[in-house]
Computed example of a mutant assay.
Amino acid sequence: MKMSDSLPIGSRSNRLTCAGTGLIALDVIIDKLSSTCPIFKAGGSCTNVLTILSFLGWNSILIGRTGDDQFSKILFDDLHRWGVDTRLINVDSGRNTPIIVEKIDKNRKGEYRHSFSMTCPICGSYLPKYRPLTMKQTSDILNKDLTPCVFYVDRVSNSSVKIAKELKKRKSLIFFEPTKLKKTNLFYECSQLADIIKLSHDKLDKKSSNIFEELNNQLIIETLGVKGLNFRLKSEPWEHLDAFRVQNFRDAAGAGDWCSAGLIHYILKNRTCEGSILGENLVREALMFGQSLSAVNCNFPGARGSMYKLSNNQIMSIALSIMNKRPESFELDLDPKTEDKFTDSMNICPRCSLKCHSYNSKVGLEK
């Protein structure tokens, strides 16, 4: 569904609204264990979180930049399919859309694994990358009547900090989930604006290992992959939540994005008028709900693979059941015959003009 240009930004019935800025890219999912060609889906943490929230019934407003090429059409078609409002995405003429290649295969133990690459899998050329908004584009956006209840940021830039600062004044809840942890002035400025900050343990190194001692946000979350997550409310001790074991595990890509979207959805849907919306019990339940959504999606390839196989009601029902029963592990009864649609004649790389079918031929995926 494409938003009508005549509607005010973020107006779709009386739904909750989340705006977000950061990585807007096209994911090229290459499943080395399948004979299908690469699958093209909208991707990037910010894009995934906003698209998942739209899938869960929110007004989602994506803010950022993309290119004007063959990939942007696929990107926008996918976003519009899920009802994401794309009118604040600047399409740069003559530029290429950012591309991320996800490869899925197995390790020596026979366990599924995935990896991300910003280079062409054949010629090694760098693929088009993320570009932040210009300050002129940012000013134009802030002149709009933009008042979301949540603002999500995954990339630190002058533009994202400026938007966060203004929307903080407009009473938006600021959710900061940096994909890269660089302790710059902009990082600290965005951190201080954030009500919620979510960091991956994988991103921490010796230089940033003490970062949690420096943060004093209302809610801080440290994700630990298969080990679950730790969280701390302001002035409270750290708590731990184990992850769910998935029997038919397929792909962990996007697990963190589902957790973030689930947390946002659950907190805002179940808040009360009394006190802070970040109460301890509500936050714990919201994180478990987010973990449950992540576990469901891990049964499918791609960062949002479950959305193309299951309905909103099915995913919500399964996630709530997992959350309430807290099983040690769970298994979905899936139809193995269902196949996702793919495109077999797209150029992946602007330099070598690699096409999907020629990639399959080179790596032996074609039957």
Rank of each mutant, 00 (worst) to 15 (best):
R81L: 04
R81Q: 07
W82H: 12
W82Y: 14
W82D: 07
G83R: 15
G83S: 10
G83Y: 14
G83F: 12
V84I: 11
V84W: 12
V84A: 10
D85N: 04
D85W: 04
D85V: 02
T86Y: 11
T86R: 06
T86C: 13
T86H: 10
T86A: 09
T86P: 10
R87E: 11
R87K: 15
R87D: 11
R87Y: 13
R87I: 12
L88F: 14
L88N: 13
N90H: 12
N90Y: 09
N90A: 05
N90D: 05
N90Q: 06
N90G: 04
N90F: 12
V91D: 13
V91T: 15
V91F: 15
V91L: 14
D92A: 09
D92L: 11
D92H: 04
D92T: 08
S93A: 07
S93M: 01
S93Y: 01
G94E: 07
G94A: 05
G94V: 03
G94N: 06
G94P: 01
G94W: 07
R95Y: 02
R95N: 06
R95G: 04
R95T: 02
N96Y: 01
N96C: 02
N96E: 08
T97E: 05
T97K: 01
T97D: 07
P98F: 04
I99Y: 01
I99M: 04
I100G: 06
I100A: 08
I100F: 02
I100Q: 09
V101L: 03
E102M: 00
E102W: 00
E102Q: 02
E102D: 03
K103D: 03
K103A: 02
K103W: 07
K103S: 06
I104T: 10
I104S: 07
I104V: 15
I104F: 15
I104Q: 12
I104P: 08
I104D: 08
D105E: 15
D105N: 15
D105K: 14
D105V: 09
D105R: 15
K106T: 12
K106Q: 15
K106N: 12
N107L: 10
N107A: 04
N107R: 09
R108D: 13
R108H: 14
K109S: 11
K109C: 08
G110L: 10
G110P: 04
G110F: 11
E111P: 02
E111Y: 07
E111H: 06
E111C: 05
E111R: 05
Y112A: 06
Y112S: 05
Y112D: 09
